[in-house]
Amino acid sequence: MSALTFKLIFERAQRVDCSPLTKDKLEGKTVAEIAALPLVAGRQPVTAGDVFEISGDDCRHIVFENSSDKLDFIGHGMSDGEITIHGAAGAYLGQFMTGGQITVNGSSDIYTGCEMKGGQIKINGNAGDFVGAARPGYKNGMTGGTIIISGNTGARTGDHMRRGMILIEGDAGDYCGSRMVSGTIAVLGGVGRHLGYAMKRGTLLLNQAPAQGISANFNDCGSHTLAFLPLLFAEFAKLDSGFAKVSPFSRVQRYAGDIGGIGMGEILVRL
């Protein structure tokens, strides 16, 4: 058995909806059947075979080669198995996924892990805006699982996030943790402006103090040694991530906010 491989034939102008290309939907299909599946790419009808050169037979491991940031909805709703993407991934990577693992060797576009429920996404590159967020009108962003980004994220990381972890090895963009309901976002690098804006609950764990300081909509709760942090680091240690190499700390400065809202969120800055 070899990985079921989708090699993008040429960079398309229109965005391609790759949501049909998961183990859950392809199990038991032959390459020919898969090639005949209709895909949405702009308003013209295309098939998977028009878009990809398809090979391999193990849909438990799906590989996208030559991938581009116009390949949207990869791993949409997947429940298990593994997807590896060589190149960029488009928007809504891993949307609604409940299990399994996605690895991107490249960067991902907006809404990575949108409303995901479980499993793991690893971006070996940067991610766009709204990592782990909820679509407009929806109330819950990711509700489980782990997203690891080796590079930087765009704005609104974890917007409306409800559970799960987002680990950013590089820098987080503006409004990181905005409207967060719960869950944990940890950042090794820097963070942008408006950190935790309108967050209700949840934890923003920073390995270093924000360059611009903590804004006035958070109140300082002092320095503390928090008992849950060793547990968190023990969890990090299991991951294929720079977070596994960080020497664990449990001594932090704790800030609570956003005080404009219910103010139950926290920013924890390593001391």
Binding site: H194, Y197, A198, S215, A216, N217, N219, D220, D258, I259, G260, G261, G263
Partner: peptide, 22 residues
């Protein structure tokens, strides 16, 4: 963003530590 959030906190009667915002 921060100025309005602080104003909202004050409207709710919440404690605001900062003495100045923006």
């Amino acid at each position: 963003p921060e100025v309005l959030s602080v104003l909202r906190a004050l409207v709710k009667g919440k404690q605001v530590q900062a003495s100045e915002v923006g």
